[in-house]
């Protein structure tokens, strides 16, 4: 069995603990079952005594910091239902469409980047909802439609077949800059959504493949509905 990252790279583990002491003194590492979990409370309003705190457990992936961590709210404060953006089966929080998180965090899932750019906004939003206020940011639809909505915002195309084929071209390394932009502008990619397309080209293959699966699911649903 492959040795976990914190054993092969103890300096990185020490660095992680140093970051927690410096920036998040109420979060602590726990090592069990060959996993590193970060457990404690996270103050969403910053480091003040009256801050709004959440009890959390962040499970770091085996290739930390290259993949997205999983995170749970552990005090039962966030209802475990899909409309509160929680995976009902596992109880993990859905802080964003994985492919969008990867793009926004530029593939850096180091603990500070993840807590500040992914988790903090989510928890602030939850606290406002608890106060009877609307969610302060955009919300994605559930499941595959949420994935498609990301691509609609990101490359301007809401047709699952077109998005799926475009992603397959990236996966197969066939995409060229002179191709027409997927947004339908008629311009070459290099003169249109080039930056965003470049970001997609930097995605790991498993995320692209997962997006393709979502597009196939949507097409299957469309076919089932039309029958």
């Amino acid at each position: 069995m492959e040795r976990p990252w914190f054993e092969t790279n103890p300096a990185a583990f020490d660095e992680l603990r140093g970051i927690l002491r410096r920036r998040y003194p109420t979060l602590h590492t726990e090592v069990a079952d060959l996993k590193v979990r970060i457990v404690g409370t996270f103050a969403v309003l910053g480091d003040v005594e009256l801050s709004d705190r959440y009890s959390i457990c962040v499970e770091l992936p085996n290739d930390y910091p290259r993949s997205i961590p999983s995170v749970w709210e552990t005090a039962g404060r966030i209802e475990r239902v899909i409309d509160r953006h929680v995976f009902p089966r596992t109880g993990a929080l859905c802080v964003g469409v994985p492919v969008e998180l990867w793009v926004r965090l530029a593939g850096d899932f180091g603990i500070v980047n993840y807590l500040e750019k992914a988790l903090r906004p989510y928890l602030i939003g939850n606290s406002l909802v608890e106060e009877g206020k609307p969610w302060p940011f955009d919300e994605s639809p559930h499941g595959s439609e949420g994935v498609l909505e990301f691509y609609q915002r990101f490359i301007g195309n809401s047709d699952p077949a077109a998005v799926g084929n475009f992603l397959i071209a990236i996966l197969q390394n066939r995409l060229r800059g002179h191709w027409n932009c997927p947004c339908g502008s008629g311009k070459p990619i290099r003169n249109c959504h080039e930056t965003n397309v470049r970001a997609l080209r930097s995605l790991p293959n498993f995320l692209l493949a997962s997006s393709v699966d979502h597009m196939i699911s949507l097409l299957e649903m469309q076919t089932a509905r039309s029958n």
């Binding site: 953006h85 089966r89 606290s127 406002l128 940011f137 994605s140 559930h142 994935v147």
Partner: peptide
């Protein structure tokens, strides 16, 4: 305080859910 904090984090990834 929460509203100010939401404004300060800028654009956030929209939360999502999947079965």
């Amino acid at each position: 305080a929460l509203t100010a904090a939401a404004a300060s984090v800028g654009a956030a990834a929209p939360p999502w859910s999947d079965e």
